[in-house]
């Protein structure tokens, strides 16, 4: 269970989060949407303790993580798996070394057991046989899958996805969405996805939260979101640009 209470964050004079409060029960699939710059990724980074709020707090399984020291946060973060927008694979390591990074650091399993776990994780994301490749040899979709394999290999309780389908073609995007669903079903992990992609909302979400100007504008189910008559929601869901705000270069 993750809870935020009146979470606020600003960069300079720009208020990115303004007293945001919500909670995510165990195993729920929450999708956070909103226009660029509305604070979605910033919110996600607060949930995992990568950013410190100006005020307010975040609780993970009842434990307040706001204000914890970095080394204490490492313990809390072992409950989380995160897929970054850019996948954030370690360039200098192979796919197998990336995926098995946590296992190697922990050193609890033998080399053979680690190898087996890595193969299992790669099979789960349908990338078996890519162990020896370097991240630079992979396509965007493959990199995201490797990033996901790295995030799920230690079976985290909570998995957060930062724009998992951005920059991918529709077919790869769909496969990533289905993968998110499959991982959620198999690991029973709480899933939080930040995205602009309405197809991801349709496929993945049990609950949708829309951010606008640092506030939660809508917190609803996907069905209600897609049938909403609210002009802001309707405009975003259908991707309609406001004609009077479009500027053309002469």
């Amino acid at each position: 269970m993750i809870e935020t209470h009146e979470l606020s964050k600003k960069f300079g004079s720009n208020v990115v989060l303004d007293k945001v409060s919500f909670s995510v029960p165990e195993s729920q699939r929450l999708v956070i949407i909103g226009r660029s710059g509305t604070g979605k990724s910033v919110l996600l980074k607060h949930l995992i303790g990568l950013m410190e709020p100006d005020s307010g707090e975040v609780k993970v399984d009842g434990e307040k993580i706001t204000g914890l020291e970095e080394r204490e946060l490492l313990r809390v973060r072992s409950k989380f798996g995160m897929l970054f927008q850019s996948a954030a694979l370690f360039d200098s390591l192979s796919v197998a070394e990336n995926v098995g990074f946590v296992l190697q650091r922990e050193g609890k399993l033998s080399a053979a057991e680690q190898k087996e776990k890595i193969s299992e994780a790669l099979e789960m994301v349908e990338l078996a046989g890519t162990e020896e490749k370097k991240p630079s040899e992979l396509s965007g979709g493959m990199r995201k899958r490797v990033g996901l394999a790295r995030a799920i290999i230690y079976r985290p309780e909570i998995i957060v996805y930062d724009e998992p389908t951005t920059g991918l073609d529709p077919i790869v995007s769909d496969s990533i969405d289905k993968l998110i669903l499959r991982v959620n079903e198999q690991l029973k992990a709480t899933t939080i996805v930040v995205t602009h992609d309405m197809r991801t909302v349709k496929t993945v979400a049990q609950r949708v939260m829309m951010l606008k100007k640092g506030h939660i504008y809508v917190d609803t189910t996907p069905d209600e979101l897609f049938s909403s008559q609210d002009p802001v929601v309707h405009q975003f869901v259908n991707g309609i640009a406001d004609a009077k705000n479009i500027e053309f270069e002469p």
Partner: peptide, 9 residues
């Protein structure tokens, strides 16, 4: 950030 999420300082 990825290192930090993988519980590594």
């Amino acid at each position: 950030d990825a290192l930090r999420t993988l519980a590594t300082h």
